[in-house]
Design a protein around this nucleic acid. Structure first.
Lengths: 136, 136
DNA sequence: ATGAATAATGTAATAATATAACATTTACTT
DNA sequence: AAGTAAATGTTATATTATTACATTATTCAT
């Protein structure tokens, strides 16, 4: 799977390695499981992972799933700050769907307005059982 | 401040103490800061707090703020499971507004439907700067 | 009432997640 | 090339949460 060179080239070595780990993963990963995956690439301390994750999150390449203390690569071409994203998580198979349409951003804008707050960052996570798991 | 006896009477001693701590607090508290507040009431270990928090959350008396790893008493008379709640958090003064109207529940229902997921639990947190802090 | 089952508690140990502090290296800019 | 900013390496430690197991309290059917 080829990566966009323009994206990867803007990243440092550690950032690229962490992002690759997340891209290769089927689901969200904890910082420490990323660390374990990257020990054979020279990673030795959690801070190496956390620092890369900070930047990747800042760039919009990675999202943090607060309710799982874990991280997931953004599935969208570029997730700019203005767009709110919602995550739907199956508690059975742990598949995560990343939803990011205008209605979500609108909803959060309305919420911010109701609360008289200037929005910085939103976090929307819905836990449930996906269709496939429900059938079993 | 008098508590509803019907509510308190259904709680155990530890649960009541933890809920009181959260009711007395101006904002959200971490489990360990609750523990510290309750040491003079005989609390000695984090598990005493976590176990009480589990039950209080289950009963709907307490909410967990995932992005803060902390807990807050529910401001509503009774927060049944069917109602989705959103939290608006000022990153400056740390005041938390608990929003719980039908539009939030509706929004999450639509999201669940779009993702073909049977919803269990939702978590909506919006970080920003409140009006008061913005003025300063 | 009594005994069995269930729920809650006490306590110690440890696991899992995250950051502080400081030294060093690399990359960028002029 | 020198100076600055950004990234990295490394150790130690802080913070958050759970496992495991023993004990006590409560509930509930008989």
């Amino acid at each position: 799977m080829l990566q966009d060179p323009n994206i990867d080239s803007s990243l440092t070595k550690n950032q690229s390695l962490v992002l690759e780990s997340l891209n290769d993963a089927r689901g969200p990963l904890s910082a420490y499981s990323i660390l374990d995956k990257l020990r054979n690439k020279g990673f030795k301390a959690p801070l190496q992972v956390y620092r890369a994750l900070d930047k990747l999150t800042e760039f919009g390449f990675v999202h943090r799933l607060e309710s799982l203390n874990s991280f997931i690569a953004c599935k969208h071409a570029s997730c700019d700050d203005s767009a709110a994203t919602a995550f739907v998580i199956c508690d059975s198979c742990e598949v995560v769907q990343e939803m990011s349409d205008i209605s979500i951003s609108n909803f959060m804008a309305v919420l911010a307005n109701k609360a008289s707050v200037k929005p910085i960052k939103s976090n929307i996570e819905l836990h449930g059982i996906c269709n496939d798991c429900e059938k079993k």
